[in-house]
Design a binder for these strands. Structure first.
Length: 540
RNA sequence: GCCCUCGUAGCUCAGUUGGAUAGAGCGACCGCCUCCUAAGCGGUAGGCCACAGGUUCGAUUCCUGUCGAGGGCACCA
């Protein structure tokens, strides 16, 4: 609905510009846009065409703008009721309200499909996230990657990608040995070895381990099961849990090394094997096989990415914490060394989470055992509040989580604000039933009665959803969905407050129109929350 | 020393490919329940968009530099 009209306006403007025989149309096409002004006084849409083109055509911006505005008005465009020059030379375009109210039927008709697109064209994308070592419980820091990765996957599916969610299990190596040794020591009533894990959870878990168990295997299975259980509780689901050990056992390392040699991207020097990653922009070449014959951590990671492509994934997204960012350049180089394009691998770095309590920073350290576990958070406020809190802001920014606040079930927590908006709409149906009131068919509603600012605001926000979804997906920014959901909730609250539906003073025909408007808002709210993986309870 | 991300209201943060008077929540203050959920709505106060240059009709946004915060720079994982 929104999109076709923007297309109409855009092509009408371009037709006018061509008619006016202006210079520089080709070179500036990207700079001429049709935008939605933040300020309603500036119309429903606005174009900067005159400003962009005036100088190189030796014209006065406002005069050129006036010419464009006049021609727009006589172009016979649907809904168009005004085009005027403003400011330095903007053309502000005004539309009749039915431009907005037409949206109601579209949303009701499309339902949960509203906002969906085929931006991804069915491309197969594998999102790898969390991938925490199986050496302890997931903590509050992991929750950021978990909620982000999951929301991103939902978003990409919604815009037409075929998406897989994978957890890479680092189930071998030094960390595992240290962890097993710490478990064994606690189990025997001793202190963990030098450099071992001293956290309380090691004591707790060791107590659960029966006599004669292999601490490494038992510890691995236990940590993995715990992580899976807690992720499920957060409503995060993976399609695959990929084991490093199994991959290595299958001979993937040897095959990868052979592949790299065949491609001529590795060199032998000083008794070691080096990946010439500087060929692809890395700072220095990287050792993949040490002079003692052992391979470095990098080689399994290369083999793992090779495996992902081998399984038919066309595009890979790795979600990593900021502490891994030094790894990006070499991995990008490695993937290109395997013959893939630079664009085939995308690494999203999430900045670190800082936890505060009483205004003081709470440090997270698995080794020392000072842990705020993910489970603690979920059990305090439930998965919805945890998810929405983490998905509130861009992963590019470091995030401060106030533990006192998230735990407090108050209006300071935005999840209540949003869910409340949904619950209020749903309550209309319940109350109507009690009072014996019924909603008639949508085709009988007269939406021209919707002229209240609150009603139009609600529609304006609702109409942005398809665009917001596209932008959020393109920028890998699910927090933009959160921002929109809050905006929509705000519009719903305002509408609910000022535009009563069931009240006896509300005329029946207006009641019907508002009722369907409320229904379209409910659909939008639900869709946004679904993308975030947050539930939409019908009552609170 | 080099690289990455960031610096916006007292606090936590938004800000669509550069647009007009920079927004929200919380906190502070003042109002609103004979009315579908007051976990709500409205209003007031609060800003040198870190700083300095540059690009142009126009910069919070793009470029360079400075300062500050966090993270990273191994034949460790």
């Amino acid at each position: 609905m929104t999109a076709p009209l923007t297309d109409t306006l855009r092509s009408a403007i371009w037709a006018i510009l061509n008619d006016l025989d202006l210079e520089g149309l080709v070179g500036t096409s990207a700079e001429i846009h049709l935008e939605r002004p933040a300020n309603l006084d500036h119309g429903d849409f606005s174009s900067n065409a005159a400003l962009t083109l005036a100088k190189r055509n030796d014209r006065i911006p406002r005069e050129l703008a006036q010419e464009i505005a006049d021609r727009l008005m006589s172009a016979g465009i649907d809904h168009l009721i005004g085009a005027e020059v403003a400011g330095p030379g903007f053309v502000n375009i005004r539309l009749a309200n039915d431009w907005l109210t037409d949206l109601i039927e579209v949303v009701v008709d499309e339902g949960s499909e509203f906002g969906r697109s085929d931006l991804g064209e069915g491309q197969r994308v594998l999102v790898e996230f969390v991938s925490a070592n199986p050496t302890g419980p997931l903590h509050a820091g992991h929750a950021r990657g978990a909620t982000y990765g999951d929301a991103l996957a939902r978003l990409l599916e919604f815009v037409g990608y075929e998406v897989g969610r994978e957890f890479y299990i680092n189930d071998r190596g030094v960390q595992m040995q240290t962890y097993a040794a710490s478990l064994a020591a606690r189990s025997a009533g001793e202190e963990p070895p030098e450099g071992g894990y001293v956290g309380q959870y090691i004591r707790d878990w060791a107590a659960l381990m029966s006599e004669g168990e292999d601490p490494l295997e038992w510890g691995y299975a236990h940590a993995r099961a715990e992580q899976q259980r807690v992720l499920r509780a957060l409503n995060v689901h993976f399609d695959s849990w990929f084991s490093e050990r199994e991959m290595i056992a299958s001979g993937a390392i040897e095959r990868t090394l052979a592949d790299l040699r065949e491609r001529g991207v590795v060199d032998d020097a000083d008794g070691a094997v080096w990946l010439r990653s500087t060929d692809y922009g890395d700072d220095k070449d990287r050792v993949v096989v040490k002079s003692d014959g052992e391979y470095t951590y990098l080689l399994p990671d290369i083999a793992y990415h090779r495996d992902k492509f081998g399984r038919g994934w066309e595009h890979l997204i790795d979600v990593l914490g900021a502490d891994h960012h030094g790894y990006v350049a070499r991995m990008m180089a490695a993937v290109q060394s395997l013959g893939h394009d630079r664009e085939d691998l995308e690494i999203v770095i999430t900045q670190l989470v800082r936890l505060e309590r009483d205004g003081q920073e709470v440090k997270i350290s698995k080794r020392s055992g000072d842990l705020i576990t993910m489970e603690d958070l979920i059990s305090e406020v439930g998965p919805d509040a945890v998810r929405l809190t983490y998905l509130l802001q861009s992963v590019d920014s470091p995030q401060t989580i106030d533990l006192d606040l998230i735990v407090r079930q108050s209006n300071e927590n935005p999840v209540f604000y949003v869910q409340m908006a949904n619950a209020r709409i749903n309550s209309i149906g319940r109350v109507a039933e009690e009072r014996g009131m019924t909603r008639l068919g949508i085709s009988e509603a007269d939406f021209s009665l919707l002229t209240h600012d609150r009603e139009l605001d609600l529609l304006r926000t609702l109409g942005q959803f398809p665009d917001v979804v596209r932008v959020a997906a393109r920028e890998r920014a699910p927090h933009k969905i959160t921002t929109w959901v809050r905006d929509l909730a705000s519009a719903v609250h305002g509408f609910y407050h000022d535009c009563p539906i069931l009240h006896p003073d509300t005329p029946e025909d207006l009641r019907q129109a508002r009722w369907w408007l409320a229904e379209s808002a409910r659909i939008g709210l639900r869709s946004g929350l679904d993308l975030l993986g947050v539930s939409a309870p019908e009552s609170m």
